[in-house]
Amino acid sequence: MADRLLEVDGLQVRFFTRRGVVHAVRDVSFGIERDETVGLVGESGSGKSVTSQAIMGLVEFPGSITAGDVRWKGQSLVHGPTAAADIKRIRGNEVSMVFQDPMTSLNPVFTIGSQLTEVTRRHLGYSKMQARERALELLDLVDMSNPRQRFKQFPGELSGGMRQRVLIAMALSCEPELLIADEPTTALDVTIQAQILELLAELQEDLGLSVLLITHDLGVVAGTCDRVCVMYGGRLAEVGPIDDVFETPTHPYSRGLLNSTPRIDEVTSRLVSIDGAPPDLVAPPIGCPFAARCEACSDRCISEMPELATIEKGRDVACWHPFTAS
């Protein structure tokens, strides 16, 4: 616990739309230790991105954090008189972020250099020359060929993979302690995906970064993370060390998710997809959000919400009928 960097505690995020209130994130709690890589997985719409936005203080209008807390090194980034100023200082500095779509993530009318130097000039007060030196160093760090030339180029002149490297370089400018990567490889070709993941793993090791890796691909998590949080319908379904969750998934949703992921180390007979669709977050079910799609569903699952409970050390699951190894 001593070196816990980030703590998300009972986080609740709602969007007040014309269609009704969207309960995007409900009562999510997890922590990230120094030097740790945590995976956040779940299918589309499960609230992964919104969770990361809440951590960064970037929940978009018409949404807001309606309950719970996000603490950075023990300090609240949501409540208290200095929270607003703190999050502004931390964002892009101690905690930074890489997004899904490298093609649109850079401003097309400014050079790579100008966008890279903006960060260090703002957060670290670098002079123009210092910022330029640092930017070239960063471009080199993310294995970009010819940094000097890249510095002067516009985003339109780079490929998707190169742009993602630039974005990673940008996120690393101020030597952050936590890097949040929201589906950093989804938009890239498979070969480039592998390169980017490898780069992230290398950087994590070399720089002693903590990483929150958001993805819907369990295969990606398997290779890179220490722990994994499985999200479903805006709630956490299961949290645990990566190997344990992969060996013996206890939540029926994690099992389904694993069955639908091709694994390289095993010749599975066939891929099973989970039937049905995720719950409507405007009127979420009062019971377990997964109940409607669950094989082990009972009356209790429909009428009562299972809370996240520890089943063994370091393993939490929110289910009335968890699978157990025994």
Partner: peptide, 14 residues
Amino acid sequence: NSQYVRVSKAKGTP
């Protein structure tokens, strides 16, 4: 509403 604005915000740009 574009992505690069989201990224700029995450960079801490005012």
